[in-house]
Each structure stands twice: as C-alpha cells, then as structure tokens.
C-alpha cells in the first residue's frame, strides 16, 4: 500500500527536532551521565553506578525536602481546587460581566513568577507591607523570616493568589459547556443547588478538573522561583523544597553527581504521582468503563 503522505514533510520537522535535541534531550542525557559518575576534580570522571542514587535516597536532607514538597502540594490542591471550583461557579455565564471577570481572573497568571515572589515579599513585611502591617496592627507579630509557620502561610497564600485563577478558568470553561437543558431538567426534577452541583456540574467538569489537578500538582511539586525569592528557603531550611535544595547542591556546592541523581529521582517521582492521579481520576469518573451487574 502506498504511503499516504509525502515524506518530504519530515524535513519541516527537522529544525524543531534539532532545537529540542539541543535544549532538552542532550542536557537530559548529560544529567543522566553525571548521575552515574563521580569525580575527584580535574575533570576526571569514573563510573559510580547507583552510588549517588542510594546516597540521595538515604539522605535525611532529601527526605525532609520530599516531605515538605508532598505536604505543600497536598495543601495547595486541597485549597486551590475547591476554591477554584467555587469561584468558577460564581462567575456569570452570560452578559457583559463575563469578559470583566475573565480578565480579572487572568491577571495573576500574567505576572512573571519572580515578580510574584517579590510582590509578596514586600507585602508580607511588617513595616511596609500591607499584609504584614495590618497583622501587626491587630496585634499579631508577623515576621516570616523567623517563624516557619508564618513562612509556610505566606508561601501558601502567595501560591493560592497566583494560581487559583488557572483552576477557575479551566473549571469555568467546563461549566460553560454544559447545555442549558440540564439545568432546566434539574429544576423540574426539584433538585437543590447542591444536587445540581454534585450530579450535573461536577461530573461534566471531570475532564477539565483532571487537567487542573495534574497541572497544579506538577507545578506545585516543581515550585522554585516564588518561594526562592520570597523566603530563600528559610528560615533555616523550613521552606527548602526539593528544587531549591537541588539548585543549592548543584550550583552552590557544585556536587554534580548527587544533584544529577536527585534531579532524576525528582523527575521520576513527579511522573509516578501524575500517573497515579490520572489513573485514579479516569477510572472513577464518568468516562469509566461500565461495571456490569446482572444480566442485560
């Protein structure tokens, strides 16, 4: 059978291919390379096998950072997903205000991430920051540079402010796609607002929610710029997430071997957890295969 398309089309893909190779694949291979080698300096490398991997996995520092990341992502998801859904439900679906709301929601997403960090850094200061100052006026001594609870609070607040809009916009697009007839039928069936949410809106938002959860999980797990600018990983190492730790190790200490190994482990963890989320959500959602009970 003839090939249906002209093979010359592949030539068009070549430049992209080269670009991706240079910017992504080759560096990745380099990292893999570093992760299995050790050096005594002077650019001499020898094979270290899985030594770095076991070092990293057994190091307390890594485990603590991992726990911080998992906790952080969990808190973020628990706050942002329901909050995003709630805001999306409140947004108007028709009329003039739709564009206004959409623009307002989009604004936090447009700000460069390090600027976000800086904004909140200033915001949280107890002398000139609006947030910090208001708290000290009430009587709470807010100094996130010293208390780890407060630094966590401000990092979380910052992330919620920055990224909930993404969840809102995704959920809103899912909501808007629901035909009016469903709402009409629900009214006629006498369903309460909660039931409308649970049996119509939530199931129909399932696909978008999956995207929202995956995106928020991956981004929050990989978070770097904002907390780095905001707290620098401190106080101490209380907000030192895996990414920050990784950078310290690779660039600060120039321990390329363990850094490379850690980054690969990091990557695999994200991959694994994303896959888990995806499988769970598609198997329990409305796209789930039917489990037949009884005869037809």
């Amino acid at each position: 059978m003839d090939k249906p398309f002209n093979n010359k089309a592949w030539l068009f893909v070549l430049p992209v291919f080269v670009l991706v190779a240079i910017s992504a694949i080759i560096p990745l291979m380099t990292v893999v390379n570093y992760s299995v080698q050790d050096t005594f300096g002077n650019n001499e490398f020898f094979w270290a096998g899985t030594e770095w991997f076991s070092d990293v996995l057994s190091s307390d520092r890594f485990r603590e950072s991992l726990v911080r990341n998992l906790t952080f992502s969990a808190i973020i998801l628990i706050i942002e997903i329901p909050l995003g859904i709630a805001i999306a439900l409140c947004m108007p679906r028709k009329g003039v205000w739709v564009s206004v709301c959409l623009v307002l929601m989009a604004l936090p997403l447009l700000i460069p991430w390090n600027v976000v960090g800086t904004i909140w850094q200033v915001f949280g200061r107890s002398d000139i920051g609006l947030f910090g100052k208001s708290l000290s006026v009430i009587g709470i001594d807010f100094n996130y540079g010293q208390s780890w609870i407060q630094s966590w609070i401000i990092v979380i607040l910052m992330d919620v402010w920055h990224w909930t809009s993404l969840v809102v916009l995704l959920c809103y697009s899912g909501l808007v796609a629901i035909p009016e007839a469903y709402y009409q039928a629900a009214r006629i069936d006498g369903a309460s607002k909660w039931k409308v949410f649970r049996y119509i809106q939530l199931p129909k938002m399932q696909r978008v929610l999956l995207i929202a959860v995956l995106l928020r999980f991956m981004d929050s797990f990989m978070i770097y710029t904002e907390p780095f600018v905001l707290t620098g990983g401190g106080p101490g190492s209380t907000t030192t997430f895996l990414s920050i730790d990784l950078v310290k190790m690779a660039i600060g200490q120039f321990d390329l071997g363990p850094a490379a190994a850690m980054s690969l482990i990091y990557f695999l963890i994200i991959l694994l957890l994303s896959w888990v989320f995806y499988t769970v959500m598609t198997n329990f959602g409305i796209d789930a295969p039917d489990r037949r009970e009884g005869a037809d």
């Binding site: 035909p179 007839a181 469903y182 009409q184 039928a185 006629i188 049996y199 199931p203 129909k204 409305i286």
Partner: peptide
Amino acid sequence: AQVFQFPVIYDT
C-alpha cells in the same frame, strides 16, 4: 415534567 430534544440524564 419536561422531556427535551436530546436525552438529559444524570451521568453518574
């Protein structure tokens, strides 16, 4: 009660 043009059922 109203029946619409396309079937409206609760998927879950």
